[in-house]
Design a protein around this nucleic acid. Structure first.
Lengths: 225, 225
DNA sequence: CTGCATCCGCTTCGATACTG
DNA sequence: CAGTATCGAAGCGGATGCAG
């Protein structure tokens, strides 16, 4: 893309990551290091030449780096540099703004369970942003949605989620489409069609957690102390 | 722009504001309500038809609204809706990531003093993010840069800046190019070419303030007191 | 003068095919 | 698997025109 040519922090940031697809590539690399083919699968509709060009530009600007493993299988892995990792706050904040747009449902859009990692970061504020008394309940949850498996860990320091490839279980297991899981996590839906299993106590803590989601109620209800 | 067609909060946000120029239009409206011609002047290089189309789209999606004043002079004013105002955190966070790119200087880029409003929001964290002991010094400063006049107000709750058209003075007056003012505000430059006037005590508080800038350099040089 | 719409050359995007 | 090559379609940038 052509530079905006403005001496402005936002414009300069957009000169680097403002191109179409670029922020979504960064999103994928924030979820985890990826190979080229992983990215093509995670970004339905991207043209292969565009992905190649974006990755080249991102490497030139120092946002992304890659490691070539000429080992048994050729495996070039792309990952964010330290500077690129600094984009997490920005992109999560954007996702937080866009999260209400998810309430309309998935429609004909593509679904990936891994994108819930981002949705979870957007739905639950950092613990530092909470009132002193408020705390997230301690809970581990396994989420199986649209082919991806996620591990959600909630504790006093906040809520974290990551993709996992292990099939170990957690206190709660949630299975469904990512649309169903999102509706559940965003705090509505007592009658969710997602399939949830776990002990009564764990389910209670899950309910406690989802009630703190940022897009949950318009009224700033207090968290249970 | 074509929708990404992804059931993802970030992708849906970018469906609304991901187009070229769109975030910069929102930036201008975050700085303050603007007329069409204000926007063309504040966005050097934008094609007039593009601006018109972006504004139309932003109105359709509910980010921007406009009021027609069929008064003496025709004056349609564009401003952000409540939802659009919610973009401030996201864009400031992006600007915060991009701020280090300003250290290289302005080069041939266009300059506008008003963009410093955004730079200031990026450079100084919200007071809530500060350690309990740390506090911004109380200070008012007037900034004259590249044809725009800004009023900076620092207090225990944080640092705020806005464009002003009055010519009243403040405790400190800073004049120079936006490049010079940015260098000063980002905490480096003991020997800034910007012209600073004010009482010795006010200058000391200015120095105290700039030393808290997020990109505050490797060497926290003090300002001349 | 402000607030656009129209037209045109050029770049970029999207889709598919092809190669090391 | 990890890209490059190609080509029609869409979008952008710049100039101009024009109505209120």
């Amino acid at each position: 893309m052509k530079s905006y040519g403005e001496f402005c922090a936002l414009a300069r940031a957009l000169d680097v990551i403002g191109d179409r697809w670029t922020m979504l590539i960064v999103r994928e690399l924030l979820i985890g290091p990826s190979r080229y083919s992983d990215l093509t699968r995670a970004l339905p509709g991207i043209a292969t030449n565009l992905l190649a060009q974006r990755l080249r530009t991102l490497e030139e600007t120092g946002v992304v780096a890659s490691s070539e493993e000429p080992a048994p299988v050729s495996a070039r892995v792309y990952f964010l540099t330290e500077w690129g990792l600094g984009l997490q706050r920005s992109l999560v904040e954007l996702a937080r703004w866009g999260a209400p747009l998810m309430a309309a449902g998935a429609g004909d859009d593509h679904n990936r369970g891994r994108w819930l990692v981002f949705a979870i970061m957007a739905l639950y504020p950092e613990a530092a942003a909470l009132p002193t008394q408020a705390r997230f309940p301690t809970l581990t949850a396994r989420i199986d949605a649209d082919g991806d498996s996620l591990l959600l860990v909630s504790g006093s320091t906040g809520v974290r989620a990551s993709v996992t490839n292990s099939d170990e279980s957690a206190e709660v297991t949630i299975a469904g489409t990512s649309e169903q899981v999102f509706a559940l996590l965003s705090g509505g839906c007592a009658d969710t069609p997602a399939r949830i299993t776990g002990s009564a106590d764990a389910l209670r803590r899950l309910s406690e957690l989802t009630s703190t989601a940022l897009t949950a109620g318009h009224d700033p209800a207090d968290l249970p102390a």
